[in-house]
Design a protein around this nucleic acid. Sequence first.
RNA 1: UCCCCGGUAGCUCAGCUGGUAGAGCAAGCGGCUGUUAACCGCUGGGUCGCAGGUUCGAGUCCUGCCCGGGGAGCCA
Length: 446
Amino acid sequence: MDTPSIRSVLADGEVGARVTIEGWLRSARHSKGLSFLDVTDGSSMAGLQVVAPGELDNYDPEVRGLGTGAAVRVRGELVESPGKGQRVELRAQELEVVGDAADDYPLQKKRHSFEYLRTIAHLRPRTNTLAAVFRVRNVAARAIHRFFQERGFVWLHTPILTGADAEGAGELFEIEGGEAFFGRPTRLTVSGQLEAEIGALALRNVYAFGPTFRAENSNTSRHLAEFWMVEPEMAFCDLRGDTELAEAFLREVLTAILEECGEDMAFFDERIEKGVVASLEHIVKTPFEHMTYTEAVQRLEQSGEDFEHLVSWGADLQSEHERWLTETLVQKPLVVTDYPSAIKAFYMYANDDGRTVRAMDVLVPRIGEIVGGSQREHRHDVLAEKMKAQGLDLEEYGWYLELRRFGSVPHAGFGLGFERLVQFATGMANIRDVIPFPRVPGYAEF
RNA sequence: UCCCCGGUAGCUCAGCUGGUAGAGCAAGCGGCUGUUAACCGCUGGGUCGCAGGUUCGAGUCCUGCCCGGGGAGCCA
């Protein structure tokens, strides 16, 4: 705990300094009377090379017998490394085996499949890739809070247990015994948006950032039953302000990842997704493309592409359509606005044309939809009519309607899937590998 | 939930038109004072996902189920 991180030793350690480090062996190479140990503590992609000479009291058999996975504490002197691949190395004067690893330690130096690593989720953070993912995830979370805090947004802690049947969108996890305990049916939240609206109409600008749950039986590389969502909500704000915030938000968080995770991003670029760094750098520099849903449909119809699903005004854009728009047509993030009201949620602000709403989706290459947002319907009577038309229980949403009777103002917000953002930034193919403990249909181990 | 592909040693995989199981890595033992996924030698290690069926004989063919992956739908 008091010893310096390997990251700091690699960055600032001076030749001749006496240091003590603690970590786990990523690999061990033994030759006669000399061992090379690649030690990592998760603080950086690169490990520190420890050179253990045969003169150590416990060299034979203890040090010589060390293998991948063992935990060690090493005291020694930093020396210039005569070998290639590292600036300095630690010449051990004392090497304590804190925790040996049994010889059936499942991680090997060679590559494992991500499918296998998921079955050993208690050990996979020790791999280069997952450790890098979790470091990037942390930097992204910090950048998100910083982005909002610097702009005066209040982090509103919206509930995880909820009585609201929010949005009527998505299957909900029912709480067993919820009715007996709370006096009404309760579920795990699918969104903090409605509660965030409460916050925005008092504190002006707020954001929710926490876990969200969907009981959808969706089995894809982009869906989780438990995921983290970022949901800002702004009062006195329209759809334009909402998209401006989303664009600034994505740009700033991706910039932070590029600047603060250089070593990890270089690894992702080389081993996971070639060109991911260049694509992020491009996105950060270039303004996003904007078009209305109606324009998008026109472009798709004129594309000459042979889509599997028919393109027609009024139907939702399919994955293949979204991918063509963002990957082929504009080749950068694309903001699509003003969708048909029939395919969007009841709370979205109705445009004067009577058939579209002020909704926006941000589409990005590889992932598709990463942000979904809208200006909210703040006109009491319009909202009540839409709720009735969609068969919603006005009693149930009494408080939501009431917000429109007491100082209602135009307001807007969006939702962003945190794991999709991490997936996009790292190039990881499966969303299950960007969250420490994935929950998907049929699987909730660890 | 639907479509397609897969499941063989601890891991990654090979195994032809059916003839009774293999490699690399890992592990164990030994060798080598400077390695970088070290290298060299030896050794151990298998209910071929599960259950039926066809056959003289099934890892291989057929049926059902389970699990995993990719795609679709739903969405973030």
